[in-house]
Design a protein around this nucleic acid. Structure first.
Length: 103
DNA sequence: GTTGTGACTACCA
DNA sequence: ATGGTAGCCACAA
């Protein structure tokens, strides 16, 4: 409630994503009440501390793919976490069945 | 105060 | 279908 930081709100929205499902940056921004801040969502996750406990791995781009290059370590980490949650990931593409938990 | 940048999205060829 | 360009807004320097 205080700090009134967009960051804080975004974190809250990201944390509201149930396990086993994934959402896009734009989706998160929209649910947060700030459509158009899709880019900033990613910027916030990038700034996340190591012990943030935020399910950043559930956030993917609008194409349903992981927003990292395949050779990036973050990509493998996110894919591993998603699969651990029961989300199937093919290459960089995430199973659409798990895409977005709510319409 | 300005400038540059980005884990994005939408549109157009 | 894919690929490139433009628009977008908040934050850091």
């Amino acid at each position: 409630m205080d700090t009134s930081s967009l960051k804080q709100l975004i974190w809250h929205t990201v944390a509201s994503v149930p396990a086993g499902k994934v959402a896009s940056y734009g989706q998160i921004a929209r649910l947060t009440g700030y459509p158009g801040h899709a880019r900033y969502v990613g910027t916030c996750l990038k700034n996340l501390p190591k012990d943030s406990r935020l399910p950043w791995h559930r956030i993917i781009n609008g194409k349903g793919e992981i927003a990292f290059p395949m050779e990036s370590p973050g990509f493998r980490r996110q894919r591993a976490l998603l699969e651990a949650e029961g989300v199937a990931v093919t290459g960089c593409k995430v199973n659409m069945k798990n895409f977005q938990w709510q319409r």
